[in-house]
């Protein structure tokens, strides 16, 4: 048994209209400092958080889309995206940002940790997580 716990952040809200997406991201960034295994799951309108090409210049709001791309640097291992939620919104993986991950010690690299999962795989992710934070 190790002390490393598996944390899963569940995101179900669209970005910008409410503060949930940004709050979740901030908590992830803070929590990632504690050397736990951190993954994110995007379900329902949460999948909109990863749509690329965001431009908030006319809204007077911070564009936090680029910040998701740093999650790999913060040691986040997986960004799971629910397939059914994506399909219901007419989106595909091509519409989503890519997030790279690299182990700085072993130099092991993964080009993109954004992964589309079906319900069965998602159930597995929820089951194997020690803690689930919901936003």
């Amino acid at each position: 048994m190790s002390d490393v716990k598996k944390f899963l952040y569940l995101n179900r809200r669209a970005p910008y209209g409410t503060i949930y997406a940004w709050e979740s991201l901030e908590v992830v960034l803070i929590g990632a400092a504690f050397d736990q295994e951190v993954s994110l799951m995007f379900v329902d309108d949460g999948v909109f958080q990863l749509v690329k090409g965001s431009d908030t210049s006319e809204l007077d709001m911070k564009n936090f889309m680029p910040t998701y791309r740093t999650l790999g640097d913060y040691g986040v291992r997986h960004l799971y995206v629910d397939k059914a939620s994506l399909e219901a919104r007419g989106l595909t993986q091509d519409d989503l940002i890519e997030v790279a991950w690299e182990d700085w010690e072993t130099e092991e690299e993964v080009d993109n940790i954004v992964e589309i999962v079906d319900s069965g795989q998602a159930i597995g992710v929820f089951e194997e997580s020690d803690v689930v934070f919901s936003f």
Binding site: A14, V51, M61
Partner: peptide, 13 residues
């Protein structure tokens, strides 16, 4: 438009 742009949704969609 500004709200659409912020969400990365292009006009052609």
């Amino acid at each position: 438009g500004p709200d659409l742009k912020a969400r990365g949704i292009a006009e052609d969609r």
